[in-house]
Design a protein around this nucleic acid. Sequence first.
DNA 1: CTTTCGATATTCT
DNA 2: GAATATCGAAAGC
Length: 219
Amino acid sequence: MIDEAGVLGEPALAAAPALLGATITGRGVTVRITEVEAYMGETDPGSHAFRGLRQRNRHLFGAPGTLYAYRSYGIHTCLNVVSGPDGFASGSLLRAGAVVEGVSLARERRGGRVPDVGLARGPGNLGQALGAMLTDDGSSVLDGRGPYVLRFADGLEERLASSTTALLDESLADGRPRISVGPRVGVGGVAGGRAFPWRFWLTGEPTVSSYRRHPQATD
DNA sequence: CTTTCGATATTCT
DNA sequence: GAATATCGAAAGC
């Protein structure tokens, strides 16, 4: 039987697609996650853990279900859900979602004239819609004592019963994969000259952020 | 729809 | 100093 801690006990490459369709609730807003990226330990050149344990990234090395919150480009607060195994600096960056509860509060936080579909589109915007703060760094999304609680989508157990590959192949019923895979956004570091296809999103979701080529990408 | 560019704080060279 | 897991406005298609 796979519970939430069990899913997050897996490295981010397996846990990240399982986060799609899950909800994160806190500070009056619930977001249904539609886009994530996997970051895989100290050997992943795109990961904040690449240069080893630092003050900022210490919670990436923490227990599964820990929140890793960091300041991006000096302005935005972005959220990762840490996954296992314990001590492996593996996390899933929450890149986009659909606000399903607390829409008016999310609108207030975003300010201006933002269409509802864009309230949590992009990692910085998702953090802002949820009211995330740097002090959320290190809290848990599983024990109910932190500011946010993560709930997986119904039927996740069956979908994970065999493997991540099965999860990605699932729901080909209408001819389109439900989950799409592509290169990560804004990550210059590549190994062997190829980007890792470690970005996952729900196919056709209007809340998914549009892909932006990294400024230093050469193609 | 796309591209370009400035703002901003923390980390790293 | 330079780079960065980004965003929004502005301008051109």
